[in-house]
Each structure stands twice: as C-alpha cells, then as structure tokens.
Amino acid sequence: MQINLSPQIRPGGLEVLKAGDTLTINGQLFDFTPVAEGGILPAAAVDCEFVIGDVRRQGGELELTLLLPIAWDAPESCAFPQPILNPADGRVPLPTDEVANA
C-alpha cells in the first residue's frame, strides 16, 4: 500500500489504522479489498473528506491520497510529507504524530 499525503492548513487531526486493505480513518472503516488489479475507485465514491484522490490498485498494491490537516507553522516534514510505503497493520505513523509528540 502507498499512502500519499496532501497537506492542508486546517484545524483537526487525522488518525489512520490499517488492517490489510482496510483503513479506519478517524474512526470510520473503509474496505478497499474490492478494488481489482488495474481498477480505480473514484475519490467521489468514497464517503470520506480525507480521501482526496482516486484509489488505485497496480501491481497488487493499493495507492491512495489522504488530506493531512496541518498547522500554519507546521515543520517541513508535515508541509512536504513523503509517501507512506507499505505501512504495517495497526496505526499508520503520520508526520504530524512526530510534531505532537515533540
């Protein structure tokens, strides 16, 4: 799985939990298992304000883009985040977690 992050200055937070091809985003479960190889699930078909790009499966891996709420003075790691590649099942570490725990 590849999770791309698109930062946006706005209040609130983001918590993402992963279990296989399912993500729980701020407490709401989304199952992307039905997305077939080469398939695209339009972002508009996912009832989640944080899923802002189409969900794709290529090479057996899901790829999606999530909105990342950040503060106006967020560090570079939050303002220009790297994609999250092959996160383990459980809580997905986000760059904003590092700032909150600093």
Rank of each mutant, 00 (worst) to 15 (best):
D97W: 11
P11H: 14
G27N: 05
F50S: 06
P81I: 07
S77M: 12
W72G: 15
E37R: 01
A43G: 08
S6N: 10
L67V: 12
G53L: 03
P69H: 11
I52Q: 02
L66G: 04
C78D: 07
P75T: 12
C78Q: 11
R57P: 01
I9Y: 08
P93M: 11
I70P: 07
K18F: 03
P11Q: 14
L66A: 03
V16I: 05
G60V: 02
G20N: 03
V35Y: 02
P83M: 07
G13P: 08
G59M: 04
G38T: 01
L66F: 05
L5R: 07
V92N: 05
I52R: 03
Q2L: 04
V99M: 13
P42Y: 01
T33A: 06
L68V: 12
I70C: 04
Q28I: 12
F32P: 04
W72V: 15
L64V: 06
D97N: 10
D97Y: 09
A19T: 10
R57M: 00
V99T: 13
E49K: 08
N101Q: 15
A100Q: 11
E61L: 13
E63P: 10
A19D: 06
L41I: 05
D54G: 04
E61K: 13
P95S: 11
R91W: 12
V46D: 06
E76A: 12
L62H: 07
L14W: 02
I84F: 10
R57W: 00
I9S: 10
